[in-house]
């Protein structure tokens, strides 16, 4: 029979507790009118970045401003505001910085489509090199 190292087991338990604690830290108890509102709340918090912290979502952050913004998101959801209205509200105050998913605009054009442009250029270069090699080989054979 395989023996388990008790220390490793304890460490596993400890780390799993820590990771749960991490999720529980940044969240207050909130009541929602419907299960849908709760789901919307959770997904919005994951999409919005805390404006004070460099890389934490509103869901993860314990900063004072995140607590306020979570309350605001909760309030707006319960008021019947759409997700888009809530996102627009945040962007109007904190800028595009708060969006983890950047908007499609002229400023973010390269961000969204740059990789595809590079891919297309790479493909063009690849085909021209292959074509010219093939042509040269054809010439040397004849």
């Amino acid at each position: 029979m395989k023996r388990y190292n008790p220390l490793a087991l304890w460490l596993c338990v400890l780390f799993s507790m820590l990771s749960f604690a991490h999720y529980a830290l940044g969240q207050e108890q909130m009541t929602f009118r419907s299960e849908l509102n709760k789901t919307r709340y959770q997904s919005l918090l994951a999409e919005l970045r805390c404006p004070k912290c460099q890389n934490q979502s509103l869901a993860d952050s314990n900063a004072g401003i995140s607590v306020d913004l979570r309350e605001q998101v909760h309030f707006m959801i319960e008021q019947g505001k759409t997700d888009q209205e809530i996102v627009d509200y945040m962007v109007a105050r904190y800028g595009a910085f708060v969006l983890y998913r950047p908007q499609h605009s002229s400023a973010t054009f390269l961000l969204w489509y740059g990789p595809f442009i590079l891919l297309a250029i790479g493909f063009l270069v690849f085909t021209t090199v292959v074509m010219s090699n093939r042509k040269r080989r054809g010439r040397s054979l004849s």
Binding site: P51, K52, A63, G64, I65, D68, L69, Q72, R93, Y94, G95
Partner: peptide, 12 residues
């Protein structure tokens, strides 16, 4: 309540 702060985009 910090609501005007929110409108001004204050983070602290």
């Amino acid at each position: 309540m910090g609501l005007f702060g929110l409108d001004m985009g204050v983070t602290g």
